[in-house]
Simulated scan of single mutants.
Amino acid sequence: MGDHQRADARRNYARILAAAEQEVGVHGAGASLEQIARTAGVGSATVRRHFPTRRALLEAVSRERIETLCVRARDLAGVDDSREALLAWLADLLAYSVTARGLAAALSYDDAEVAGSDPVASSCAVLMETAAGPLVRRAVRDGAVASDVTVSDLIALVVGVVLATEHRAHPAAQAERLFQLAVTGLSPAR
């Protein structure tokens, strides 16, 4: 690919991503790929060449927030109370997922869908697992969380709460309420 073609591809990618951020912000995970293509001034095939799956598109739109969550998990690793650290990270994940349309959907695809896709498409899930894993392992080791709880379980819990409340009158308040109900069941019985 020549320099000119590479520059065109980079410009197209940037325009598609900007259009996708706008469209996902308004319509969430169901954003129209055709509308994204029209807004970006490219054909649908160009959108699909850059983002072969809806998941890849949603992850690209959500990447900055996912990276911020990963940094936050590393920062919280220094908090003395392992349960408090894990719950603080989950609260951030919940808040981001409520406000960033498409993030919950990007995190909700199952492993079977990931396995058949480009390895890059699952990088956000891997980043989240890697970042939050130490928080979960430490909370399990300290007896603050049941031993069979995984990062995937917790992400699925948050995603479920967000998707269940996204069309309610006050989604953030409803999501927080449901999450708090779920959290009371996370700790082992004492």
Rank of each mutant, 00 (worst) to 15 (best):
A172R: 07
R38M: 13
A100W: 02
E84F: 03
A88C: 09
L87H: 03
L107N: 00
E113F: 12
D153W: 06
D142W: 09
V126E: 12
R54V: 08
L90H: 01
L163T: 06
L178G: 05
V162C: 04
L17V: 04
A156C: 11
V26Q: 15
L93V: 07
V161E: 01
L135W: 01
Q174N: 15
H170I: 08
S152A: 15
A60P: 02
A56H: 05
T46G: 05
A169G: 13
G43Q: 07
T39W: 05
E113L: 12
A19C: 09
Q174D: 15
A40P: 01
A77W: 05
R177I: 10
E166K: 12
Q22S: 13
E64V: 06
G160H: 02
G185H: 12
G78H: 15
Y96K: 14
C70R: 04
A131D: 02
D8M: 14
D75E: 15
S187A: 15
G28A: 10
D92M: 13
S152W: 11
A164W: 00
V151N: 00
V136D: 00
I16D: 01
Y96T: 14
V71Y: 13
A40Q: 01
D3F: 13
A106K: 01
I66T: 04
V47H: 00
A164C: 09
E67Y: 15
A189C: 15
A175E: 01
S82V: 01
R168A: 11
L186W: 03
V42F: 03
